[in-house]
Amino acid sequence: MAPVPYIEQIRRLYPNEPPYRWTVNLTSPWAPMLKPVRDCRIALISSGGIYHPPQEPFNPVKNDLTFREIPKTANVADLRISHYSKNARDVKDLNTIFPLDRFRELEVQGRIGELASPAFTFMGRIFTRTRLQKEMAPHLIGRLRELQIDAAFLVPV
């Protein structure tokens, strides 16, 4: 299977937007796994702009630097999408961008140690990269440390 030509696809979908400046990391931000996944406390993180009423929807304008915490016991049918991208807004099966049901199944099956609660979502397509790196990311990382997360499953939308 060929990789998805994501950058070209974004340029085709948003021809009237200024070209996005993609981040280039010269070193890897990833850390090696220290234990098997079946023993890990896993955080689910999605950029799908999902929120759980009565939480506030995300700002429909680009660059909302907030995130929402969704309890792992939430009913997926109750969740909503508030996202700048029409591709995210048009999603029919929320588990494709926020696989909460699938991770609960993995936990019951013993394939992961535990799905952490809460799970996290934010609205993708944030163009203020420096603010994302200096404001939102440290706050989110702080929450993951508080929850003693071993690994995170990231779902880009």
Rank of each mutant, 00 (worst) to 15 (best):
V155F: 04
N87Y: 10
T121K: 01
D101I: 04
L34S: 14
P118D: 07
R125Y: 15
V76S: 01
D39S: 15
E56R: 14
N75T: 07
L13I: 06
S85G: 06
T130R: 15
T27H: 09
L147V: 10
L154Q: 07
S82T: 05
L147K: 09
A151W: 03
D101M: 05
V91W: 01
Y14A: 13
V24H: 11
T121W: 03
S82W: 03
A77H: 05
M123N: 03
L115F: 05
P5K: 05
W22M: 09
E56Y: 07
I7A: 15
A116L: 08
M33S: 14
Y84I: 06
S117N: 06
Q109S: 14
D64T: 05
A88K: 00
M33R: 14
L140P: 05
L34I: 12
A31I: 12
S85V: 02
L26H: 15
L34W: 12
I141E: 11
L79G: 00
R145S: 11
P32K: 10
P60Y: 05
R68Y: 04
R11G: 10
R68H: 07
I42Y: 02
K72S: 14
P15G: 05
A137W: 11
W22Y: 15
G110V: 06
A2C: 10
Y20V: 12
P118M: 06
G124D: 01
A31E: 15
Q9A: 14
P32Q: 08
V24S: 10
T73P: 07
C40K: 01
R102I: 09
P18V: 07
S117Q: 05
A119R: 00
K86G: 12
E114N: 08
L94D: 00
I70M: 02
A2P: 12
F122V: 04
R41I: 08
F153A: 09
P57R: 10
E107H: 04
Q109I: 11
D39H: 14
V155P: 00
N16L: 14
L100P: 02
Y6M: 12
Y51Q: 05
L115Y: 01
K92D: 07
I7V: 14
